[in-house]
């Protein structure tokens, strides 16, 4: 009967998982906290850089060492890509040529050292 219980748990967990997706709220660094595979990613932008702060399921920071990422910015009909690199601690950052304007859209595709894929979409308010 154990496998049935497992399956039941799986079925029950599915809607929860579905709910979890796309659920976002404020993170500890003042940015948008997004649930990603194996933890959370917090998107923070300053006038000079954009950064992802990685944390695990419990919200503890995860070192960004070895992680790589790429951000695509859509601003005024033009796209621009920014490479993100580890910037100490749990931070994965890339420099901005100009600050994000309202309505600009940013998508980040990153990969951690252990191969987890992180996708974040952000719309500047």
């Amino acid at each position: 009967m154990k496998p049935s219980i497992l399956a039941l748990a799986l079925v029950l967990a599915l809607p929860v998982a579905a709910n979890a997706q796309g659920h976002s709220h404020k993170g500890p660094n003042g940015g948008e906290l997004v649930d990603v595979a194996g933890g959370h990613a917090e998107f923070v932008d300053t006038p000079t850089e954009i950064a992802l702060h990685l944390s695990d399921e419990d919200g503890k920071p995860v070192p960004a060492k070895g992680a790589t990422g790429k951000a695509t910015i859509l601003s005024g009909g033009k796209t621009e890509t920014v490479d993100l690199a580890p910037a100490g601690g749990a931070k994965l950052a890339g420099a901005l040529t100009k600050p994000l304007a309202s309505g600009d859209k940013v998508v980040v595709s990153a990969r951690t050292a252990d191969g987890r894929k992180i996708q974040v979409r952000h719309v500047e308010r």
Binding site: T72, I73, L74, G77, T79, K105, V106, V107, V108, S109, K117, Q119, V120, R121
Partner: peptide, 21 residues
């Protein structure tokens, strides 16, 4: 495997950038 797709749409309703695996 899992490939990241960044899709840019510029239509009559505005421009958008989407990401998906």
């Amino acid at each position: 495997g899992s490939n990241d797709l960044v899709i840019q749409v510029a239509g009559p309703d505005g421009e958008d950038l989407l990401i998906a695996a």
